[in-house]
Simulated scan of single mutants.
Amino acid sequence: MPLTDVQVRQAKPGDKPRKLSDERGLYVEIRPSGSKFWRYRYKIDGVENVYAIGEYPDIGLADARAERDRARALVKQGRHPSHVRRIERAKQQLANNNSFKSVALEWIGTKTNVSDSYRNQLLRAFTKNLFPYVGRLPVHEVTAAQLLECLCRMESRGATYYAITLCNWLSQMYRYAIRNLKAEADPAVALYGAFVRKPVEHSRAMTREDIARFRAGLSGYGGFRANTIALELLQLLFLRTVEVRRGRWEHVDLAAGTWDIPAELMKKKRRHLVPLPPRAIELLTELQAITGGGELMFPGLRHPNKPVDGSTFNRALERLGMKGFSCHDFRATASTHLYESGLFRSEVIEIQLAHAEENKTKKAYNHAEYLPERRAMMEWWQDFVLGCK
């Protein structure tokens, strides 16, 4: 007769272990201590074996029967249930060791042929956008739908281009996992085309009227003075925003009228010597009274040991009424008007813009050889912008 749950629950222990049989090889073993264990008796190749299912009441009668049925199906295939369980546990342990986060960190660690900044960018992207949601899951169990949800969060905050880039990085990581037998497929490949890159908005030059409007806005701007100085320096020196943000006082020589930016702080990784026109020296002298006590020219307000946030200057530009322009447009503005003036050689303009020079002959020139021409050009440009009214 099949057992009932009441029979199993009320069964009392004896002086010796005893058994209560259910059906199809299932029984419960009751020990003198009172512990009760489910067992399944079966035969393979004529040899009797016993499969330990688990302890009652952790495993109830219904669950014991379900596990017995699963074990019977394996026996019919000639497989020992205990062997299969050991294999499954080993696989699960391996999966736990190969979590999405651990494999991603392992892959990032293999990137020895890239710069530290690029490797840190990878780490930040995964840490912020993926690890909180799928980091603990076994890497081979993460689905395309789960990754899509993570990338959609990025798109919702306006980081579409970043989401596309991260999707490409995900595929690289999964190809690494597949090569190392930690995954069998790349779920990220199904997401290609899920996000559409917005049309590239190229820099546009300000007209004389735009320049006049900008300078009028500067005079009445009530925001943090260091930000106003940064905007005017961007216009006068047409450096890249990141190069101004990361500026350090040790590289500025106001007496000599130069800002000598080392290669590691330049986008193109080449030293850039900037001649300072009088108005720029005046602004930097004022700025020195504000931030000169530290190493950074434009420290963040919350984190003074780090440069000001990358969006700060663009937001200040918008508040000046220059909506539709970005700080990068100062470079396009200077380039356009300097070329239109016809007064300066192209190589002088391009060196001041810190552009890469393809011509090897021009590339061989030392910055100092151009310095007199560049200083004259920067003073002309200063007078030009100050004269736009």
Rank of each mutant, 00 (worst) to 15 (best):
L123C: 00
L137F: 07
R302I: 01
A354P: 05
K267G: 03
Y40Q: 10
G292N: 03
F100D: 11
N180C: 05
G342W: 03
E379M: 00
R225P: 09
A256F: 03
P299R: 10
A62S: 00
K306P: 01
A11F: 06
A334L: 09
S346A: 14
I30T: 15
Y192E: 06
S21W: 09
H355T: 00
W169T: 04
C327W: 06
V308H: 11
G109H: 06
G222M: 09
A280P: 03
G247M: 04
E48R: 15
E357P: 06
A368L: 15
Q77E: 14
F298E: 12
I290W: 10
R331M: 00
L320C: 07
E141R: 14
K267Y: 01
L122K: 11
K12V: 06
Q382A: 11
A64F: 01
A354G: 00
I44V: 09
E141V: 08
R319M: 11
N120I: 02
L233F: 03
A90I: 04
R248Q: 13
L231H: 02
K128D: 03
A104Y: 04
I211F: 02
T160R: 09
Q77M: 15
K91P: 01
F126A: 09
V308T: 07
E55T: 13
R153M: 07
D260Y: 07
V196H: 15
R345M: 05
P2T: 03
F313E: 04
D69L: 04
A226I: 01
D309I: 06
Y51E: 10
L170A: 05
E67C: 02
L218M: 15
A205N: 08
